[in-house]
Amino acid sequence: MDREDLTPAAGSPAKPSGSFGRLSSGFLAVSLLSGAALVPHYDPAAALSSLESIASGIPLGAFLRGLHAWSSYGLLLALVVHAVEVARKRTEGQLAAGVWWRAVALLPLLVLALLGGFVLRGDAEARAAADVWRGMTSSIPGAGPPLAALLLGGPGSGLGAAALHHAGTFSILLVILTVEHARVVWPGTRPSVLAALASVGAAGLLTVPLGPPPPGHGVLLGPWPLLGLQGMLVDLPAAAGWIVPLAGVLLLGSLRGAAGPARTAALAALAALAAGWAAFTLRILVLAGH
């Protein structure tokens, strides 16, 4: 690693923030290990049937799938709380600019990985989620269609590209950027045990759905962290699907180096985005008849 990257910015607080940062590393470890255990049994060419045979054909298969899903959701939750923690303690200045921006990139990368994981279910809801993802990405002017093809392959080309990016590209980038940011490979015993216990508890209590959605769903819901995005797409132009998350990432990134009214404005805009996200989450749940 570049020596300069380890040098805290002048005037930044000396105490690192990060109990939830370490916890997210723990969740990442659980998610990667459970994902690696699933890979040999998953077939992108027969996604749904291979997941069904994981659930019923291999010992603890359904539990393992739940462990992978819940640890990944736990990772997202811990990462968001960590970002709030950093903003509150103003510790972003401890990182060099490049490392900070790459750490911020962890959030969209994780969301892409989660979306990819949902699409890999291969059932009707997953196919619809893939269509929405493709349509939304294609609405990016110029780069949209090639980017959609890069992430999901051509229309009707199967789940090969999504599987490759989920298990390969995104996972590798998440590991590299996490290690660069945390400066350790092993998150430590306590956060790892805590993340493992939380994931095991969730996987034991809550099943991850597969197959047709329960009757009465008027609209596609998709992965729960993205319900706000789904709600937004009902009322706002399709481009809002990438403009709003991009604005969130840029606002979070801009906290480093922002002081006084600029920082207050960035934080207020982030809070407004979060409130809008929550409102659109409610909107889609109501529309779906929940």
Binding site: R127, A128, D131, V132, R134, G135, M136, L220, L233, A238
Partner: peptide, 8 residues
């Protein structure tokens, strides 16, 4: 193909 974002 839906003309919004392409779902079936």
């Amino acid at each position: 193909e839906c003309t919004h974002l392409g779902c079936r």
